[in-house]
């Protein structure tokens, strides 16, 4: 059983091609954190339940604990480290939409994808997307305010 299944894979992460050696059974989360040092994606449950590990694959939010790294070969991966001074990050800061900050990268990645792909999102859509992540510190009202402000700005500039 100890025959290693490690192999080399090329991953496109935050616009850079990275070569990593990982087990074929390693999740994207594991490889991001342990091989690439991208610890922004957080392990919260390793079971697809909490959303703290959310990253984007080809622009779509996924739970990186539930996807094998090797599945993402040929796809574009974006992690929180790939976002720089985006409106959603600023809104999270200004609205105090986090406290301990642990669920924040996952929440932001999901909210970023939402605001980028669905600027017209209504309340039901916002809820449908954001109920994928658990925050234990805030009341969610702060996060709601942050996301809605970004959506408002987007609509204004479009």
């Amino acid at each position: 059983m100890e025959s290693s299944t490690k192999c080399e894979m090329q991953l496109l992460v935050n616009g850079e091609t990275k070569s990593v050696v990982a087990r074929q059974g390693d999740t994207l989360l594991f490889v991001l954190r342990n091989e690439l040092g991208l610890t922004g994606a957080k392990p919260g449950c390793l079971n697809g339940d909490c959303g703290a590990c959310t990253a984007l694959v080809d622009g779509t939010p996924i739970k990186s604990c539930m996807m094998l790294a090797i599945e993402t070969v040929g796809k574009e991966i974006t992690t929180i480290e790939g976002l720089h001074n985006t409106p959603i990050q600023r809104a999270f800061v200004e609205h105090f939409a986090f406290q301990c900050g642990y669920c924040t990268p996952g929440f932001i990645m999901n909210a970023y994808a939402l605001t980028e792909t669905k600027p017209d999102a209504d309340d039901a859509t916002i809820q449908e997307w954001l109920e994928s992540n658990i925050c234990r510190c805030t009341s969610y009202q702060e996060i709601e305010a942050a996301v809605k402000e970004v959506l408002r700005q987007k609509r204004k500039t479009e």
């Binding site: 610890t39 922004g40 957080k42 992690t79 929180i80």
Partner: peptide
């Protein structure tokens, strides 16, 4: 640090 993934735990 917390909104950029740089905050370390």
């Amino acid at each position: 640090d917390k909104v950029t993934g740089r905050a370390k735990y």
